[in-house]
Design a binder for these strands. Structure first.
Lengths: 198, 198
DNA sequence: TATATGAGCTAACAATCGTTAGTAAAACAA
DNA sequence: TTGTTTTACTAACGATTGTTAGCTCATATA
């Protein structure tokens, strides 16, 4: 997990509470005074722990981004698997990372656009890279004849990410279904739509 | 289409430009002075046309909501179709409504949470109703034996909506693929994942 | 012609925003 | 015991926010 978020320092605590606030109200609508109140301190006291409001957003976004990268690296190592198996593993991994911190995931998804330059650019480059690595798996599947050759690869990968990324909005972590079997079901649903009809 | 948005009054023009702004920067981060500048007038002059900033958001959200309702009403009338055919028609309709105004759709999707009460509650009730009507189609398909009986219906309908709703973020209206065939492809991909393996 | 409406302006308001300066007490390290 | 770090405070700053009051001018309607 990202260094800062997983620590138990006061700074990490500030950032976790900020994540909850950003998720509820959005980054721009969340004031530093709101955040301070949630922590039971004064707004000015926040600056003993963080450099700026944006630093919080930066840490939330980039720590999550790193976790996603690490997860995907693991999957790509397993070149003995078929494309559809790797794709499924990638989906499960993505969901597990999300489920580990649904609050930060929601912020990562919906608020990253409020990063200022050049951080926004860096973030978007990371994301494009991540998406392209999933797209590659789909292309591999088509090349192997495992997936239909008629599928629109861009559409397929965008549909996949839409489904994954919206999850923090509706998934209830206290639900009966645990992240791994959720990941499996979702992967089945999405990957089966790509496979050749046997 | 919603009454206000489709008109060519100055008010409608203000709202359309506001939609572009809200989409780019988000509702909260868009100031009335930003909006005025885009229109080449002073901020105070906006209030000759609209009652408040929130009225703009209200109109954007509820006009879109109505369009979605109208589209789904059309589909539900066709009870001669199978569940999967109706589901496909519903998906195509949803995408066509979105494609008719991608900017307003993006605002509808991402900014509705900044509506104040009681409008937010009203909006969410409309949305729940809309989603449940799609869920009903999936349940019908399972009851008919057309869809697998093992599928998690909540998961299926949420995956469906995630895919649909994220579309305004990446779909390029100048692209080679037109809304109807996009709708068909997407419907195929998503509905095939539900069907029984023949 | 008289009147009403649409569309814009300047000036200003009260509130809220992120942030800084300077300070103080407590906890920890040497 | 001394010095350092952590955590918090009060007070205040300049900037920006949505909105209102009061006005002018052009166009459309009666």
């Amino acid at each position: 997990m990202g260094e800062v978020l997983s620590s138990s320092s006061r700074k990490a605590q500030v950032i976790r509470v900020a994540a909850e606030l950003f998720r509820e109200k959005g980054y721009v609508a969340s004031s530093m005074r709101d955040l301070a109140q949630k922590l039971g301190i004064e707004a000015a006291s926040l600056y003993s722990h963080i450099k700026s409001k944006e630093e919080i957003l930066h840490i939330l976004c980039f720590d999550m981004a790193e976790d996603f990268m690490v997860s995907l690296n693991q999957v790509e190592k397993q070149q003995n698997l078929t494309a559809s198996q790797r794709l499924q593993q990638g989906i499960i991994g993505h969901i597990q990372v999300m489920a580990r911190d649904l609050t930060a995931s929601a912020v990562f998804m919906n608020e990253h656009r409020h990063l200022s330059q050049p951080f926004l650019r860096d973030f978007l480059l990371l994301r494009i890279n991540y998406i392209n690595r999933f797209k590659k798996m789909i292309e591999d599947g088509v090349a192997d004849g495992e997936f239909k050759k008629e599928i629109d690869k861009k559409l397929a990968v965008m549909t996949l990410f839409s489904s994954l990324n919206w999850m923090p909005q509706w998934y209830n972590p206290d639900s009966v279904i645990d992240p791994e079997s959720l990941g499996k079901q979702l992967a089945d649903m999405l990957v089966n739509g790509l496979k050749q009809n046997r």
